[in-house]
Design a protein around this nucleic acid. Structure first.
Lengths: 191, 191
DNA sequence: TCGAAATTATAGTGATCGGTCTACATAATA
DNA sequence: TATTATGTAGACCGATCACTATAATTTCGA
């Protein structure tokens, strides 16, 4: 039981990292096994439905991981501007280091599979919806009305996903920091 | 000469469409040939360096295509809000139809190759820089100072790329329209 | 019309893809 | 210890990957 969870988790961990950086089609099962150090013969024991199942579970993992990180960043701040500004800045620092450990949390696999794989598309869509709900919820807590907060949740999510693309491509966190600077203007008036 | 350009262009046309929708690794040369109707035996005549060269040229094509569309949308508007609001709304409509003809203009191939292929990464980075320069230039024309305009150019680009991801995943242009609604707040004060 | 150049067809390269299969090891339980 | 369930190893499958080599074809100027 313990061992089973351990190899399963190590597979999912490396899988989500690789899917973020190289995409679904750019990552082979072979690479996942090698980099995870997991037993070579047991992928289909832990994931009978193969690569798609690994991707599905990896999406759940990334979804929870981001949700948790965002919650911590946004918590205990005095204003919405401070909360989201801090959150985006923290994300930006992930792209300054040379190590290629960070990519598009879900956006990459989402756009790869949106047109071709309904199951994975739905999983990604649910992850986005979750994050946006959290953002909206926080904004409502700061006095925004619900409709406005919902639209802003979508907008902030787009800013982060788009900003991650730009930072990946640019090889630095600068684009995300340019974005963070605009948060005060975006969230200026609670209405 | 004429014919050569024609088959070359049809290959590049379908290639850029497929790369947008399925990504670099998710698109095979076979599919490009079949869907383009190009002569089956002549890929490596027109593109001696193979898939990478096709992708590189496809990126140039998408870059110019987006640049041109954006220029038309932004041109002749009375205010910055009107210009960018109109532009994003127009993009949103591309995601309402069922036909899977639209994807991430460059963001998908950018995030797939950022960590693994320096040449393609640089090409994507240059495309992003071009678009952002256009946005900034337009904003300066509306009275924004240069630094602020540059940051806003990055931000708007991130909004669009991120918004396209969300719209693709959601299967509708709604997310992009939620984003368009925030443009007035983002561009409220020219300073 | 002839011949050279430009263009396309076709077969085949090794490598790798995701996935299946069977045999083997390990662990737990009786 | 005997038996059963749980995991793992590794060979193997057909398909497809990007790519090459060479032959056939078309194009077009001389």
């Amino acid at each position: 039981m313990d061992k089973k969870e351990s190899t399963r988790n190590s597979i999912l961990g490396t899988a989500s990292r690789l899917f973020q950086c190289q995409g679904y089609h750019g990552t082979g099962l072979k690479q996942i096994i090698e980099e995870s150090g997991a037993p070579k013969g047991s992928i289909y024991y832990h994931f009978p439905d193969g690569k798609e199942e690994i991707a599905f579970e990896a999406i759940q993992l990334m979804k929870q991981h981001v949700l948790q990180a965002a919650r911590m960043d946004l918590n205990g701040k005095a204003t919405a501007v401070e909360a989201f500004g801090y959150h985006i800045e923290k994300v930006s620092f992930l792209f300054d280091s040379e190590q290629k450990t960070t990519g598009l949390p879900i956006g990459l696999i989402a756009s790869e599979t949106a047109e071709t794989n309904p199951k994975l598309r739905e999983a990604c869509n649910s992850a986005f919806a979750n994050w946006q709900s959290l953002y909206a919820e926080v904004l409502v807590g700061f006095g925004f009305n619900e409709n406005k907060a919902a639209d802003l949740g979508v907008t902030i999510n787009a800013l982060i996903e788009g900003g991650c693309i730009l930072s990946m491509t640019n090889g630095s966190g600068e684009p995300l920091r340019s974005i963070a600077k605009q948060i005060p203007f975006l969230l200026m008036n609670e209405e």
